[in-house]
């Protein structure tokens, strides 16, 4: 098993690296984790329309990249989160079930256990959310291709709901204030819960140490994700995550 320590990246790079690591996971038949973060981007769910979901003029004005994920789910903008990605070859003994619901829960429970070690009591809300005191702290999404299951998700740290939703279209602009207020009451971040604020690096190191212990049997190897790997991934998927034909396909 490999655990990659990564930095905050442009959204297209993150998506390209995720898919590149799926190929690596398939080739080496091993589990690969990666911890990274987004930089100046809105991620769209696979089935969402960029034009319908986003305030594209504001995205362009603020130099926010619009990047379509290879996974379903909703649009998300956050500049304060830890993103985890895990690639598991289909048929790997770690996967207790191939079922989508069951595998979501199996992976999400690991993230929840990591939160518990920080003193945060979180719960799984099917299909793909993690809640703390009824508020969402993490959204997760899964796909299967190249013979590998990829699940990636957010672990929100600081939440600025006004900014988070400033790039998203709200169907009735008059309802935006009401919408933002209602979202504020249902979303939270780690640093809103803990007495001491954690940095991106501190949370990343917490999860890396936690996984090393949790997956001791798989002899995890912790590596810094290299620029060379990012460049190779970006080159391989240049026509996908770096192209308008993908990001604006719907």
């Amino acid at each position: 098993m490999k655990i990659y320590r990564d930095t905050k990246n442009k959204g297209a790079v993150n998506m390209a690296v995720d898919e590149y690591l799926m190929l690596q996971s398939a080739a080496d038949n091993e589990i690969i984790w990666r911890f990274s973060g987004p930089k100046n981007c809105v991620y769209l769910g696979y089935f969402q329309s960029a034009e319908q979901e986003l305030d594209l003029a504001k995205c362009y004005a603020d130099k926010i990249d619009v990047i379509r994920r290879q996974t379903g789910g909703g649009a998300v903008y956050s500049d304060s989160e830890l993103t985890y990605s895990v690639c598991i070859p289909i048929g790997h003994p770690f996967l207790k079930s191939l079922g989508v619901r069951e595998s979501y829960e199996q992976i999400i429970q690991i993230i929840i256990k990591g939160l518990k070690q920080l003193g945060i009591k979180a719960t799984f809300k099917p299909l793909n959310d993690i809640l703390v005191d009824g508020k969402k702290i993490s959204g997760n999404a899964q796909t299967r291709r190249h013979g590998v299951l990829l699940q990636h998700g957010t672990i929100l740290m600081d939440v600025d709901v006004d900014k988070m939703f400033s790039y998203l279209n709200v169907s009735d602009e008059k309802l935006r204030d009401k919408f933002v207020k209602s979202v504020k009451s249902v979303v939270t971040g780690i640093n809103h819960i803990l007495d001491v604020s954690l940095s991106f690096q501190a949370l990343q190191e917490h999860y890396i140490a936690f996984l090393q212990e949790e997956f001791k049997a798989y002899k995890p190897e912790v590596l810094d994700l290299t620029e060379a790997l990012k460049e190779a991934a970006s080159e391989k998927f240049v026509d996908k995550y770096f192209s308008d034909s993908w990001n604006f396909k719907y």
Partner: peptide
């Protein structure tokens, strides 16, 4: 569940065009 958004064109009750969007999941995508 999730948001389901459909764009459709009908001729009488026959579907001439149909595009499905939303924040759901479908495997394979």
């Amino acid at each position: 569940g999730k948001l389901l958004r459909i764009h459709a064109v009908f001729e009488l009750d026959k579907i001439l065009e149909c595009k499905i969007f939303g924040d759901f999941f479908m495997h394979p995508e």
